[in-house]
Computed example of a mutant assay.
Amino acid sequence: MRLPGWLTQHIAALRALLVFTVLLGLAYPLAMVAVAQLPGLRDNAKGSLVENAAGQRVGSKLIGQAFTDADGNPIPVYFQSRPSAAGDGYDPTATSASNLGPESIVDTLAANPDDATQSLLTQVCARSLAIGQLEGVDGRRPYCTPDGVGAVLAVFHRDGLTGPITRVVSVNQTGMPFISAYEGVPVQSAQVGIDYRAEGAVIVPVRGDAPSKPAVPADAVTASGSGLDPHISLAYARLQAPRIARERGTDTATVQRLVEEYTDGRALGFMGEPGVNVLELNLALDREFPR
């Protein structure tokens, strides 16, 4: 008996569905699970979870975390991670970057703190100043004010973009401006809720007298693209080593040795830069120098 064409097509489709369900829905996942149990892959397949000396799981060596107290202040006995823009920080379910670029230099000032936003420049300036104070180094950076905001002026010219300067505003400061005058014109403090760019001002960042090579490394003041980076640069780790040694009651050379031990090399030997795994390094500190 010859089946109708439409029924033959449906039976063929059903057979294909069953075959691919078995292959891709059962066989392939089971094969991947089996491969993941091979030596060298088993740890990664389980999330690269890390345990402390008491056998408690405290995180993953693949995902960064903050080492701060309940108020968000750095815990002095631990190495600090780089900033994170993922959710409230290092949230794997909200992995993301801040999406702020080099042109983000003007803050949004508002009477309600929830409506105010900081530019990338001000975030970098504030972080650098705070890290400088924590580590006892010069936290100044170019284009930053002494109080840790972007050193940016709104300059008004008589003829729009040209002509004599008629007015200057420090756009990121509502208090005392970081300089008193710009090219002979007194600098005013900013007023909340005013977009000086929309009023025709020329936005001018001011470099200041900060050193050309800041003492605080770039990764200490900027978040990674994923917001989950578990590593910091060797430069940032070495900057923190004297504080760690002081807080742990040991010498800096011993801490530096641990830093080198927990430094991962370049990917495939040539891609990227070496990085220090912060979680593993802090756990090693707890083992060798219990608090």
Rank of each mutant, 00 (worst) to 15 (best):
residue 6 W to C: 00
residue 6 W to I: 13
residue 8 T to W: 09
residue 9 Q to F: 11
residue 9 Q to I: 07
residue 10 H to C: 11
residue 12 A to K: 05
residue 14 L to K: 10
residue 19 V to Y: 06
residue 22 V to H: 02
residue 24 L to P: 00
residue 27 A to C: 07
residue 29 P to N: 11
residue 33 V to C: 02
residue 40 G to I: 12
residue 41 L to Y: 15
residue 42 R to E: 15
residue 46 K to G: 14
residue 57 R to E: 13
residue 61 K to R: 15
residue 65 Q to S: 13
residue 66 A to T: 00
residue 66 A to H: 07
residue 67 F to V: 01
residue 69 D to L: 02
residue 71 D to Y: 01
residue 75 I to M: 06
residue 75 I to C: 01
residue 76 P to R: 03
residue 80 Q to G: 09
residue 84 S to T: 08
residue 85 A to R: 07
residue 87 G to M: 06
residue 87 G to C: 08
residue 88 D to F: 11
residue 89 G to R: 03
residue 89 G to P: 09
residue 92 P to W: 03
residue 93 T to L: 13
residue 97 A to P: 05
residue 107 D to E: 05
residue 107 D to T: 02
residue 115 D to S: 15
residue 115 D to F: 14
residue 117 T to C: 00
residue 123 Q to S: 12
residue 127 R to S: 10
residue 131 I to S: 08
residue 134 L to A: 13
residue 135 E to P: 06
residue 135 E to A: 12
residue 147 D to V: 14
residue 156 F to D: 01
residue 157 H to T: 05
residue 158 R to T: 05
residue 160 G to V: 06
residue 164 P to V: 06
residue 164 P to G: 07
residue 165 I to K: 04
residue 167 R to F: 04
residue 167 R to G: 00
residue 168 V to M: 01
residue 168 V to T: 00
residue 173 Q to N: 07
residue 173 Q to E: 11
residue 173 Q to H: 04
residue 174 T to F: 06
residue 180 S to W: 08
residue 181 A to S: 15
residue 182 Y to F: 15
residue 185 V to W: 07
residue 186 P to Q: 08
residue 190 A to S: 12
residue 191 Q to D: 13
residue 191 Q to M: 10
residue 193 G to V: 09
residue 196 Y to S: 07
residue 197 R to I: 03
residue 198 A to F: 05
residue 199 E to Y: 03
residue 202 V to K: 04
residue 203 I to H: 02
residue 203 I to N: 02
residue 205 P to H: 02
residue 205 P to E: 01
residue 208 G to F: 07
residue 211 P to A: 12
residue 211 P to M: 07
residue 218 A to E: 14
residue 219 D to K: 10
residue 221 V to W: 08
residue 221 V to R: 12
residue 221 V to Q: 04
residue 221 V to T: 15
residue 221 V to C: 06
residue 221 V to Y: 09
residue 223 A to I: 04
residue 223 A to W: 00
residue 225 G to A: 10
residue 226 S to L: 03
residue 229 D to T: 02
residue 230 P to G: 01
residue 234 L to G: 13
residue 234 L to V: 13
residue 234 L to Q: 14
residue 235 A to E: 15
residue 235 A to V: 13
residue 236 Y to C: 00
residue 236 Y to R: 08
residue 239 L to R: 13
residue 240 Q to L: 03
residue 240 Q to A: 03
residue 245 A to R: 03
residue 246 R to G: 00
residue 248 R to G: 01
residue 249 G to W: 01
residue 250 T to V: 11
residue 251 D to F: 00
residue 253 A to W: 02
residue 255 V to E: 14
residue 261 E to V: 09
residue 262 Y to L: 14
residue 262 Y to S: 06
residue 263 T to N: 12
residue 264 D to W: 11
residue 265 G to Q: 13
residue 266 R to L: 05
residue 270 F to M: 10
residue 276 V to A: 05
residue 277 N to C: 11
residue 278 V to K: 04
residue 278 V to D: 06
residue 284 A to C: 10
residue 285 L to Y: 05
residue 289 F to W: 14
residue 291 R to V: 09
